[in-house]
């Protein structure tokens, strides 16, 4: 997967600025994803590419529109040195996989990365470096694997 690299403290006002929250559909909102940081992101991002951040990715407001527009564009996995709490919860609930990788700062824009889930490894094909992947706790894994909180709760009851 190709890397899209962002820095520390990417907040939800960057992911989806407040003035676009009233747009009637997620599709329209998604056209403005990450606009303040990377104005071309929504147009150039291809579904399945890897989003990488530094520390405290997703800090700021609780707006679930932030992970939702990312999901709408086809983001399935986000890797960062650390995630903000509400964003973390929102992603799990939406079934977007989050990987906390302390060395995420070593991944750069355009790098090719492979995630080997069976061996819990992250392979940077560009630099040939490999990283251990710390598995998610079982509770969160159950929710993500159900496809998010909605299906998890439906199946549970």
């Amino acid at each position: 997967m190709k890397v899209w690299k962002f820095g520390d403290n990417v907040d939800t006002d960057q992911i989806i600025p407040s003035q676009y929250l009233v747009l009637p559909t997620m599709r329209e909102m998604a056209q403005h994803t990450l606009e303040p940081l990377a104005p071309q992101f929504a147009q150039q991002y291809k579904a399945g590419e890897l989003l990488v951040g530094g520390h405290n990715f997703g800090c700021g407001s609780s707006r679930e529109q932030a992970p939702t527009v990312l999901k709408e564009l086809g983001v399935k996995v986000i890797m960062a040195q650390s995630f903000a709490r509400i964003f973390f919860r929102n992603c799990i609930n939406l079934g977007v996989l989050l990987i906390e990788l302390p060395e995420a700062n070593e991944l750069e824009q355009g790098h090719e990365v492979k995630i080997d889930y069976t061996h819990a490894k992250i392979i940077n094909k560009t630099t040939k470096k490999e990283y251990e992947m710390v598995p998610m706790s079982d509770f969160f894994k159950k929710i993500v694997n159900s496809g998010g909180l909605v299906d998890y709760l439906k199946n549970k009851n």
Partner: peptide, 30 residues
């Protein structure tokens, strides 16, 4: 509540925290 500054009510000795819409929709129903 579906707002990050929900942590404010700690000033009265209440536990309060912000969440996103899926979480809050689940609470609204259950």
């Amino acid at each position: 509540a579906a707002d990050s500054h929900t942590c404010s009510y700690g000033c009265l000795g209440a536990f309060s925290t912000g969440m996103g819409s899926t979480d809050i929709a689940a609470v609204m129903g259950s």
